[in-house]
């Protein structure tokens, strides 16, 4: 076969180029440790995510010093947690200087989980769990979007990751609040809040109680992975109640712990007893509907 010398030269150059490309990619994998999404996780039943040890417990979990897991459900057409722009779910909140492993799966169709303007980008396939470990070294916000067509609302599927300074990051949640269902106007009531600390270090929580128009705040030291309680004593006579029949209260822990916003507060109401108890039935209902108010 008659191949011109120039063409032989080009053949060699082309081979060198190809090998150079493969070498570059291998350097990225081996030298820099850039890992691919792979088959390290077992498959999962997309119709039973809530029974799964990981996806039954969505959100941020600390696994070590500066190491966190985030379990995320990508579904038509939101990320849970993540899709906070329209108030559907909490944002994903992680601390600065952390190594975070994102676990993402889908209960319906194929999605993606892509952190905008970065290399954190994975397909999310029902039945499979995508795992990405990334390092967050800068306190800032990142957008998340789905870049795989997933149905008619695909373009609205977005979310946010908030990377906050370390001292503003907490894993507190309000585990329960013990409050009386009713009280005589003018009496003192005691409201006891129990706070969980899911972090692997003891942390000091600022617990606040809003009741009537007043706000009270207690400092509470909570050990690593445990709970602690604090009691607020409120003189209902000192509250500006006007003609209210109920006193609404809300317990919140540490504004910085958005990661657990959903359990980050609890609220309920106390029925005010005057001369008769006509309102008893309705006040019971109020308490039942309250968000974890008397667990």
């Amino acid at each position: 076969m008659n191949i011109h010398n120039y063409e032989k030269l080009w053949l060699i150059a082309a081979m060198l180029l190809i090998i150079g490309f493969i070498v570059t990619i291998t350097y990225g994998s081996v030298g820099l440790g850039i890992a691919m999404i792979d088959d390290s996780e077992e498959t999962i039943d997309p119709n039973a995510l809530e029974d799964h040890e990981r996806f039954g417990d969505l959100g941020v979990h600390q696994t070590g010093d500066g190491e966190y897991d985030v379990n995320i459900r990508a579904y038509q057409f939101n990320f849970e947690p993540g899709s906070s722009a329209l108030g559907v779910h909490d944002p994903i909140v992680v601390p600065e200087n952390s190594e975070v492993t994102l676990y993402v799966t889908s209960p319906d169709v194929i999605h993606s989980f892509s952190v905008v303007g970065t290399n954190a980008n994975t397909m999310v396939v029902p039945g499979e769990i995508s795992v990405m470990t990334v390092e967050f070294n800068e306190a800032r916000e990142y957008g998340i979007l789905c870049n795989e067509y997933c149905g008619s609302g695909h373009h609205g599927m977005e979310g946010v990751i908030e990377v906050v300074p370390e001292d503003e990051f907490h894993l507190f949640s309000v585990a329960g609040v013990d409050a009386p269902e009713s009280a005589q106007a003018g009496d003192e009531v005691e409201i006891t809040a129990t706070v969980d600390n899911d972090a692997l270090d003891a942390d000091s929580a600022a617990v606040s109680l809003e009741i009537g128009e007043e706000t009270f705040e207690n400092e509470l030291e909570v050990d690593a992975e445990s709970s602690a309680s604090t009691t607020f004593t409120v003189d209902t006579g000192a509250l500006d109640l006007e003609d209210a029949v109920d006193i609404d209260w809300t317990v919140t822990v540490e504004d910085g712990s958005e990661a657990t916003l959903e359990d980050g507060s609890a609220s309920g109401s106390i029925a005010l007893e005057t001369d008769d108890d006509e309102n008893d039935d309705t006040t019971d209902d109020d308490n039942d509907e309250s968000d974890g108010g008397d667990q």
Partner: peptide
């Protein structure tokens, strides 16, 4: 062109595009 663009895309655009997925360390 291919060579220079490849180097630019890999070492500037890609490696400079932090967050990058790393293996479990």
């Amino acid at each position: 062109i291919l060579l220079l663009m490849w180097l630019f895309m890999y070492f500037v655009e890609f490696l400079g595009n932090d967050l990058t997925v790393v293996g479990m360390i």
